[in-house]
Simulated scan of single mutants.
Amino acid sequence: MNRLGQLLFLSISLFLFSCGGNGKPSKAMLPPASGRPGEMIIVMDSTQWSGELGETLRGTFAADVPGLPRDEAMFKMNRVEPSKMTRILKMVKNLVFVVTLDSESAASRRIRSYFTAESLERIKNEPELFVFTAEDEFANGQQVMYLFGQTEEQLISSIRENAGNLRGFFNQAEEKRLENTIFTGRNTLGLTKTLQEQYNCTMNFPFGFQVAHTYKSPEGSRGFIWFRQMNPENDKNVFVTYVPYRSESMFSQENLIAFRDSVAINQLFGDPDRPESFVLTETTVPYIPVTTQQLTFKGKFAVKMRGLWKTNNISMGGPFVSYAMVDENTGRFYYIEGFVYSPGKPQREYMRELQVILNSFQTTEMMKEQESSTE
């Protein structure tokens, strides 16, 4: 458990009866959370918002989304004075309350009134406590975060130290909401079945995706399948490819880019009527570099890669996100990717949808492990 996870666990007993309180309506009785994806309301003192604490919060939640062709904030932040928090505003999907004990403003006193005397005493005595989260506090489908500290300086330090985890909390909430939306309608179950029967893996797709191109080597050791959803606003793409796993060096950034390009040159065409127009990784834009990150994907070692793509004639381009991993059961090195073409338009939410689709991926080994764990 990471440090933020530990603090959230410790905080549960601190606020279990102070923020939500006894007599809280059941989830079924709550109104649905409101607001657009990626929006967030911050409730705090105006002086602190315009100072270093507010700057730290903006640097945390309004940081640029990595790997996009132009600047887009992770969250659109709107500050609201505590005295102006109406019932409607309390129903937003992402809500953050911020307060420090050293602030004596009317706004800070109002926020502190949400806390019990025991809670405030514990904050005074345990400086490591700075965050608590609550689900469905005022609306169904809502995530609420309370950020607090003995002093402003102390809270600023805690937020900076845990910025990635704080962002991750709300990013995961956004992805979960999106997953509940795109996978509950008319899903393309035939695509999932094709993957399972012919490529030893599965992935869920929302309605509108179709197979654009497939390839399998004669002996079956290499495979590729490209799924595409085209509409006037955007062109969303997902592909899955595999080759025999050879060595750990396949996971290096240099080799991943080389592997991606070798696949794209032969299988990803920019224009269906012009197969000679193919896709390449964009590595010449210094302020938007290709980045890689080692992580665990459903219990397996994986490398996540982000960056930009372009066609060889530079007529098209956009962002991509991918994962590379090994299915030990089949000895295959899998590479899965989502990329989008939507020139001149915000692309954060398109990439979030592709991220959710990629998150549904499972190899043969993952499927077997999941089945055994449910028995």
Rank of each mutant, 00 (worst) to 15 (best):
A117D: 15
R177V: 11
F148G: 03
Q267N: 06
E121L: 12
E328M: 05
K345Q: 11
D45N: 01
F333E: 03
F61H: 10
N78H: 13
R79N: 11
K27F: 02
L95D: 01
I123G: 01
M85I: 07
Q48H: 06
T291S: 12
F15M: 08
K310E: 15
V285T: 08
L120G: 06
F259R: 14
R3T: 14
P272L: 04
F269D: 09
M85C: 08
P218M: 07
A134Y: 11
Q347R: 04
S249E: 15
R87E: 15
L89M: 02
I265Y: 08
A33R: 00
V98G: 01
Q48A: 11
P206G: 04
S342F: 03
P66F: 00
F339W: 08
F301S: 10
V65I: 12
K90S: 13
S360C: 05
R87H: 08
F278D: 13
P127E: 15
T363P: 01
N180Q: 12
A106H: 12
N329T: 10
Y245T: 01
P272T: 03
N266S: 13
F15Q: 02
E126G: 08
Q293H: 09
A264P: 05
T296Q: 14
S108M: 08
N171A: 05
D235H: 06
G149Q: 12
E375L: 12
R352P: 04
D273E: 15
L166R: 04
E353W: 09
A302W: 04
N22R: 15
G223P: 09
D64K: 04
V80P: 14
Q229Y: 10
F209N: 05
L268V: 09
V285L: 05
Q6V: 10
E371D: 11
E254R: 11
V144C: 02
T192G: 09
M91S: 08
N313C: 14
A173D: 11
V243G: 04
M44C: 06
T311E: 12
E55R: 13
